[in-house]
Amino acid sequence: MRPGIIVRLIAFAVLLTFLIAPDLFEPFFGMLTKNGQPAIYNQGSLLDLTLNHLAIVFAATFAATLIAVSLAILVTRPFGVEFLPLSRSLANIGQTFPPVAVLALAVPVLGFGTAPTLVALFLYGLLPIFENTLTGLVNLPGTVAEAAKGVGMTWAQRLFKIELPLALPVILAGVRLSTVISLATATIGSTVAARTLGEVIIAGLTSNNTAFVLQGGLIVGVLAVLIYDSLAALERWLMARTGQAKRAAA
């Protein structure tokens, strides 16, 4: 545990330094350039791009969480069970669509820019969160659900005091998955002019500059690992706090 945390803290510190003062890393990235190409991305601030990238990912994941969790709650209530198969297939369709196709379809409607990327990431994020919330709500120990009813809780009290708190770690595992997928997928958004770290990669590809490609890729990669690990740690903490042994989480 300890060495792991130290490695991650160092990775975070390096990432932050690079974003604030990228020129410090010029000697390193300079080794990858040829013919006097610039070693550090020079068509905008890396920090701005990163923050924008993160903002898009968080907005999309937040909306996906809201909708997916609400949907999962609805279809696990007695009046909603009929919609369970339908909502499952809808969420599945969202997942099987390649993100590029979603972008291509969204652009004519929403125009270029951030909007189609948000829509693609949102649709993409729904399924893991929906599936995990379902798992969490349905796999509640039978005796616990029975006791919650037996003591005289209303359905809302059961949902908010028992079912959701106990399902929270599993729901969070779904959010974690969605976030990381979105983090990677958002790079494609630059093809429709969303301001994400994809710009850096594409600039590198079009000018044959390996240093740019590597910079964009590394920032996304390190962000993904750090966010993934933090959310996983939060889940473990919640698991312990809610007195549950580790349950299977997708």
Partner: peptide, 21 residues
């Protein structure tokens, strides 16, 4: 039903305690 249940104690096999409380 929920008001009725609050007036009647209910204990089951496997206790059904709320694990997070």
């Amino acid at each position: 039903a929920y008001e009725l249940r609050r007036k009647i104690g209910y204990a089951i096999q496997g206790h059904g305690l709320f694990p997070h409380r």
